[in-house]
Design a binder for these strands. Sequence first.
DNA 1: CGCTGCGTTGAGCTTCTTCAACGATCGTGG
DNA 2: CCACGATCGTTGAAGAAGCTCAACGCAGCG
Lengths: 227, 227
Amino acid sequence: MKTNHIANNSLFRGLPESDHEELARIGVKQDFLRGEIIFHEGEDGAGFYLVQSGMVKIYKISFDGKEQILHILGPGEPFAEVALFAGSAYPANAMAIEKSSVIFFPRQAFSDLISTQPSLALNMLGTLSLRLRQFAHMVEALSLKEVPGRLAAYILLENEKHQKNNEIKLPIAKSQLASLLGTIPETLSRILAKMTKQGLITATGSMISILDMEGLQDLADGETRLS
Amino acid sequence: MKTNHIANNSLFRGLPESDHEELARIGVKQDFLRGEIIFHEGEDGAGFYLVQSGMVKIYKISFDGKEQILHILGPGEPFAEVALFAGSAYPANAMAIEKSSVIFFPRQAFSDLISTQPSLALNMLGTLSLRLRQFAHMVEALSLKEVPGRLAAYILLENEKHQKNNEIKLPIAKSQLASLLGTIPETLSRILAKMTKQGLITATGSMISILDMEGLQDLADGETRLS
DNA sequence: CGCTGCGTTGAGCTTCTTCAACGATCGTGG
DNA sequence: CCACGATCGTTGAAGAAGCTCAACGCAGCG
C-alpha cells in the first residue's frame, strides 16, 4: 500500500492523515530495472521522488566518462527535492542500481501542498539540511583525506549503522563504492588488499570484518598512513 | 539600518513588512575583525547568521592542519542555517576574512517565526536547495577534475560574475583560493605560472586577465591537459 | 630597520591513475 | 546441464599529478 510508505517517512511525519491520503493520491508509482535511468542531468525537473524499494544512485559523469556518485538512496529516502525549489533542471543523473520502485510526486501538486502546510515545509527543511551536512562531510573527505582514510571512514560508518559484531556487508558493488569514494576500482582493490595485509580487516567477497578498530580510526582521522 | 539589510535578502523576500520588523527585532548585530572566529565546528548552534558587510569563510580543518574552505560568503548571504534544522552543532568553522558585520538570529525566536510563515519556509527551502546544488558541483569538481581544471572553472565563473572585459580581481588571497580549490598554495602558484606560459592568462598580483577563453573552457571541461 | 605573512621556486617522493592482462562469478541460451 | 559471454574484481608495471620540505624574495608595518 502506497499510503504506508508515505506515512512512515521522515519527510511526511507529523502530517495529518488527510495529507497522507492526498500525497498518496498525487504520487505515481514507477518501476525500474537494475541499470535503468530515472532521469538525466539537465532534464527538466518535473517533480521529486521517494524510494519505495530497491536502491538508487545519484551521480555525475565527467567529460571523459568517469563517474562520481553523490548519493546512494534506499527505501524511504527522497531524492531530487532540490529541483522543486532551485531552478527546474535536475542537477545530476539518477539510476536504479537494482530493481526498484519509486514514487514520483509531480511538482505543481506537491508545491501547492507545501505552501499551505508549515509542518511539511519544516520537515523538508530538516532533510535538506541533513543532506547539506552530508555534502559538507563529503567535500571534506574528498579534499582532505587520502583514499585509505576515506575507505576507513566508510567502513566505520557502515559498521555503526548496522552494528553486527564488527562485520559488515557492502551494500553496493565494489566498483560503485570506488566511485562513491572518488576513486577507481583498481585503487580500491589495492587498498583493501593492503588493509588486509596489515591486519586491519579481512575481506572476502562483499563481507568485511574489522580486526583493528583503532587502526581504522587513525586512518580515517588522517593520523596514520597506510605506507 | 538593519531592516534594510533584512528586506533586501532573498531569504526574506516576499515577507510582509511586519515580519521584517520582527526579524530586525530578534536579530543581533555582531562585528568581527579580520581573522576572528565566529564559531567553531562542534559548538552548539545557537542560531544562524546573515552577512551584513565584509566576508566570511566556512571551512574545515583536518587532523594535520590542512584547511578546506567550503564557502566564501559576502553581504546578504546567510550561513549556518543548517544548524537550525539538523542537529544543533555547527558542522564547520566560520571566520571573518576581513572586517565584517553579521546579524545573528537566535534559534528559538527564528524557528517560531518560520513555523507560522509558509513563505519564509519556502524561501529558506530555495536557498538551501541552491546551496545543495553548489555542493554537488563542488563534489564533482573535487573528484573529477584536476587542479588546473578547477582553477579554470573558478576563473571563468568569477569572470561571469563581474564581467569586466575579461579581467578579474581575485576577491580572496591566493592561499585562500588554494584551499577553496582543494589544493595548496605551492601547487596553485605553479599552475598559474604554467597557464601564463601557455598563453591562457596573464597574472600580476591579484589581477588575472583572460587571454584564451576557449582554452580555459576546455580545461574546465576536462577536455584538455595542461601538460 | 627588521619582522612577519604571503607568494614563488626547486627537488624529491608519495599517491593515484592509466593501460593491460587475467581470473572469478553469474546468468543465459543452446 | 554445460558452455559461453558479460560483468566484476584483481594484479602488475609505468607514468603523471600533486604534496612535502626547504629556501628565498618581497611587501607591509610596527
